[in-house]
Design a protein around this nucleic acid. Structure first.
Length: 483
RNA sequence: GGCGCCAUGGUCUAGAGGCCUAGGACACCACCCUUUCAAGGUGGUAACACGGGUUCGAAUCCCGUUGGCGCUACCA
């Protein structure tokens, strides 16, 4: 038996909305890292933004994570030895650490109001100077403080940033990164309402949860010096830090609703398979040693190495996701494809919950006609609609093919189909081809009108398979109805 | 503006000084297959941002420039 790995990583989303593609990306990398090393994957909720955090988003986060198959070992819902796992339930812990910083002189109370701070900023702006907090409250006497308290002011707690130093850390995937402390102002660690600010809470959480490796988006690189300063002031050993590249939209800006789709739930609703989405996401900023493009989760885990993670941000290419999803769909068994398509058909009212075994059999056969033509499950209803509806609405453009001439042909084809012995793809095709040949026509000239009459469209699954599945009665009725 | 990160075709990337006439994949184009659309097959267009170094030799190392992005909040 191997010793359990001491590696502990975490994903710390904010329950302020549906889970974002970027969150999925860092979550996946953390998960892969933990799973590849037999470590622990912790889920923590950063809900200190009381304005935007909503409890209902929590459940959405769990659902999406489960849909993707990213399981966690500790979290708000399942507990663990280092809880609680919601920041708002950890206020006491932050308070203790804040007190220690205050007592050691690494932090101080600041009574400046948001308005006063805004005025400072305006002033700096006007002078064209770089703004940094004025440090006005850095050396307040007990008397000063009491006077402000009497005015009813509620203080924030600020970190006292040392002058003329350098904060250095060795990024797991970028190497040495150093920042002069002079470029950092005295930042707030606890709000006037007593709730900590992200940069402070994250340090306390990572330490108390014994997180060993922090893998997060590159946006956090510039937060790191502040966090390191806090570790230092508290005399704590920081975890190893690694920053992965962001995922960008087509316009090279951060992925959002404007430039592509942002939420995991959107992908599910648009018919992407979780395994395809995961595979695609894994290849954004990482390549396995052997360069393989299609990987199961197990293969990703086996091959995942932090030193093969790239530094540059990457643009999310929806076309490639579509291609990959199409590949995954083609590799599904027909039964599985039917099972996964069902919700999409139900949503369009094409199928009901109450499925008879016979319906299922037919459903599976229908799947066979579309499997290699779709890239997402959301395309299933549109492509198979004609199988399910009694009344067929013919696409206006397609209807143009129903000329007087082609209608005449359809009538004759209809009569031939009426007497076919077995109404299967082979015999219906033979009957139609016989008609074409005997009359010296082009197959396409006759088949397309038939397709329009039977499916309502110029583009459809294979014609004769479709007719066979539709059955003689319905097929003939459709041919009749366009005459 | 300050600080920081990044930089190979349109996109994801391989490449860790000579194996590079820069490889693969998506997309795109052409052809083949074909009753439509796909799928599949074959072929093709297309990149080391720029400028200096270092070196016998640089996509790979160093510096600068340019560009993109991030932080600079009582958001995370």
């Amino acid at each position: 038996m191997d010793m359990p790995s001491p590696v502990r990583v975490r994903l710390a989303p904010s329950p302020t909305g549906p889970i974002h593609a970027g969150t999925l990306h860092t979550g996946l990398f953390n998960w892969l890292y933990a799973r590849s090393l037999g470590g622990t994957f912790v889920l923590r909720l950063e809900d200190t933004d009381q304005e935007r955090s909503r409890p209902e988003w929590e459940e959405v986060i769990y659902q999406e994570m489960r849909w993707l198959g990213l399981d966690w070992d500790e979290g708000p819902d399942i507990g663990g030895n280092y809880g609680p796992y919601r920041q708002m339930e950890r206020l006491d812990t932050y308070r203790d650490s804040a007190r220690r910083l205050l007592e050691a002189g690494h932090a101080y109370y600041c009574y400046c109001t948001p308005e006063e701070l805004e005025a400072e900023r305006q002033e700096a702006q006007k002078k064209g100077v770089v703004y940094q907090y004025s440090r006005k409250c850095r050396n307040l006497t007990a008397e000063d403080r009491r006077r402000r308290e009497d005015e009813g002011r509620k203080p924030v707690i600020r970190f006292r940033v040392p002058d003329g130093e350098k904060v250095v850390f060795d990024d797991l995937i970028r190497g040495l990164i150093e920042t002069p402390t002079d470029s950092i102002g005295d930042f707030i660690i606890v709000r006037s309402n007593g709730i900590p600010i992200y940069n402070f809470a994250v340090v306390i959480d990572d330490v108390t949860m014994k997180i060993t490796h922090v893998i997060r988006g590159e946006g956090h690189i510039s937060n790191t010096p502040q966090q390191l300063l806090i570790y230092q002031a508290l005399g704590l050993e920081p975890p190893r830090l690694g920053h992965i590249g962001h995922i960008l939209g087509k316009d090279r800006a951060k992925l959002s609703k404007r430039n592509g789709d942002a939420y995991v739930g959107d992908y599910r609703e648009r018919g992407y398979l979780p395994e395809a989405l995961l595979n695609f996401m894994a290849l954004l900023g990482w390549t396995p040693e052997d360069g393989q493009e299609f990987l199961t989760k197990e293969e990703m885990i086996r091959q995942f190495k932090l030193d093969r993670v790239t530094r540059a941000p990457s643009v999310f290419d929806p076309d490639k996701l579509d291609w990959m999803n199409g590949n995954y769909i083609r590799n599904l068994s027909l039964d599985e494809l039917a099972r996964r398509s069902l919700p999409f058909l139900q949503k369009q009212g094409l199928m009901t919950d109450a499925l008879q075994p016979a319906d299922w059999d037919r459903m599976v056969k229908i799947m066979a006609t579309v499997q290699e033509r779709i890239r997402t499950l959301a395309e299933v209803p549109g492509m198979t609609e004609f199988f399910f509806r009694d009344e067929l609405t013919i696409d206006p453009d397609a209807a143009k093919l129903l000329t007087e001439q082609s209608r005449a042909w359809l009538g004759q084809v209809r009569d031939r189909l009426a007497v076919v012995e077995v109404f299967d793809a082979v015999q219906t095709e033979a009957a139609c081809r016989a008609f074409v040949e005997e009359n010296g026509l082009k197959a396409k000239a006759v088949f397309q009108p038939i397709r329009v009459a039977v499916t309502g469209r110029t583009v459809s699954p294979p014609l004769f398979e479709s007719m066979a599945l539709l059955g003689r009665e319905k097929t003939l009725r459709r041919l009749d109805s366009v005459r």
